[in-house]
Design a protein around this nucleic acid. Structure first.
Lengths: 127, 127
DNA sequence: GCATTGAGTAAGTTGACACTTACGTAAGTC
DNA sequence: GACTTACGTAAGTGTCAACTTACTCAATGC
C-alpha cells in the first residue's frame, strides 16, 4: 500500500496511469506520449506501477499491454479515505471526551495538562 | 499539490500529520513520539509539511505549535477524488489534445460510447 | 535461419532525500 | 548579562530513484 502511494507520488506515473485507465496500451504506445523521456525510462516506470499492482500486464505476441488495476486503486482510495476520516474521528473523539468530562464532572472542567495524550491510533499502515 | 502528495508519500510524515490533526503540538512533543529518529529529522519533516501547506505553524513563546491544515487536506482529497472518478474524461482530454492536429470533423465516429463534455475542468495540478 | 519489432535489463550518472552531528538563535528565567 | 528551553539550520553521509545509453531477449515475418 505504501508502495502504491509512493508510485502515485510521481507525476509521470500518474500520467501513465491515466493513459491506461480505460485503454490497454503497449509500452511503446505509452512511451510515444512522452517525447521528453526515453523508452526505457517508461519501461521502468511501468515496472514500478506493476510492482505496486497499480497496473496489470497482458502479453499479446511481442507486445505487453498495460491497463490500470481498479482493485488496487480502490484499495488505495479506501486507505486514503480512512486517513482523512480517522483524523475527523479523532477530532470528534476529542470533542466528545471533553463533553463527557464537562458533564460527569461539572465544576471541574479544566484539566489542561493531561489533555494532549491521545494515544489511540491504530496502526493501519503496517500490513 | 504535487508537493503535498509527495510529502504524504512518506510514512513518517503521515504519522506526524495524524499527531497534529486534532492537537496542536510543539516540535519537541512531536519528536518525542519518534524515539528512533533525531529531533532535527522531525524538524525537517515539519518543514516539508509546512512547505506543502499540510500543517500550519503558530508561535507561542519559544515554542512553535503545529497543526494539520484541513484546507490543504481537503484540496488534496478533492484532487485525488478527481483522479479516481474522472480518469475517463481526463484520458479523453489527453487523447483529444494529442489528436488536435487532426482536422476537426463533424460526425467523426471514433469510439461511439465516449462523449465529450469535459470543458468544465481546468488544469488542477499546476498550482 | 535471419532480420525486425516490441519490449525488459544492465550499468552508470545525477540529484533528491532521509537521516546524522554540530551549531546558531529567539524567547523566557534567574 | 548568563542560562535554559525550544527550536531551526548547516554540513556531511548513505541510500534510493529517475534518468541515460548499450545490450539482450522473445515473438513474428520472411
Amino acid at each position: 500500500m505504501d508502495t502504491a502511494l509512493k508510485a502515485l507520488a510521481e507525476p509521470r506515473r500518474r500520467e501513465i496511469l491515466r493513459l491506461v485507465w480505460s485503454d490497454e496500451l503497449g509500452a511503446t504506445a505509452i512511451a510515444d506520449r512522452f517525447p521528453d523521456v526515453s523508452r526505457p525510462a517508461i519501461s521502468q516506470h511501468l515496472a514500478v506501477l506493476r510492482e505496486a499492482a497499480l497496473v496489470t500486464e497482458r502479453r499479446d505476441g511481442t507486445r505487453r499491454l498495460y491497463r490500470a488495476n481498479p482493485q488496487t486503486m480502490a484499495e488505495l482510495r479506501r486507505f486514503l479515505d480512512d486517513f482523512w476520516t480517522s483524523g475527523l474521528e479523532r477530532l470528534r473523539d476529542v470533542a466528545e471526551a471533553a463533553e463527557h468530562r464537562a458533564r460527569s464532572r461539572p465544576g471541574h472542567d479544566t484539566d489542561p495538562d493531561t489533555r494532549t495524550d491521545t494515544d489511540t491510533h491504530t496502526d493501519k499502515e503496517t500490513h
